[in-house]
């Protein structure tokens, strides 16, 4: 049951750490790296609050062990924000008040950006479907769908 040494990139920074096998990636970035923007809502893979990117793809970090991320490139909401990649999406969320308590928001942003990267001009039903694994108790989703839709349209207008 000893710790395993892992080396990975987190938000572009190279990290090495000793982790117990049972430590999941959400708890690893929160507790060991202080990246508390990744939120833990259910710890059994249903609520989507802990969604982050591993090697460019969104994953549930509560359903990923830290040891599985060895050698991977991990992006959390802190890194995604600093990179400027979703600055427009964040601005749309702000303008549309597409968040209230903000707890679901990092996971929601990752999932929305995942859709926007795959589908340039999603219908509202497609947005709802893609976000259907991310629970939000506050907004009723309407504002989030609006914000994602507006971002998609704005990106389409970009030269």
């Amino acid at each position: 049951m000893t710790a395993t040494r892992i080396a990975l990139m987190v938000n572009g920074e190279s990290i090495s750490a000793d982790v117990p096998a049972r430590l999941n990636l959400a708890d690893f970035v929160r507790d060991q790296l202080g990246l508390t923007g990744t939120h833990v809502g259910c710890e059994h893979g249903v609520c989507g609050a802990c969604t982050m990117r591993v090697d460019g793809e969104i994953v549930r970090s509560c359903l990923t062990l830290a040891v599985q991320a060895d050698g991977c490139a991990v992006e959390t909401i802190e890194g995604l924000s600093d990179s400027g990649e979703i600055a427009d999406l964040q601005a749309a969320f702000r303008e549309r008040n597409a968040l209230q308590c903000g707890y679901c928001t990092p996971g929601m942003l990752f999932t929305a950006q995942d859709l926007l990267l795959k589908c340039a001009n999603p219908e509202r039903t497609e947005i709802r479907e893609h976000l259907s694994g991310n629970y939000c108790r506050c907004t009723g989703y309407h504002a989030i769908v609006d914000a994602v839709e507006r971002t998609a349209k704005a990106r389409q207008r970009r030269p």
């Binding site: 969604t51 969104i58 859709l115």
Partner: peptide, 9 residues
Amino acid sequence: VAHPAIRNR
């Protein structure tokens, strides 16, 4: 099957 983030793993 579940949702995009689950299907990725």
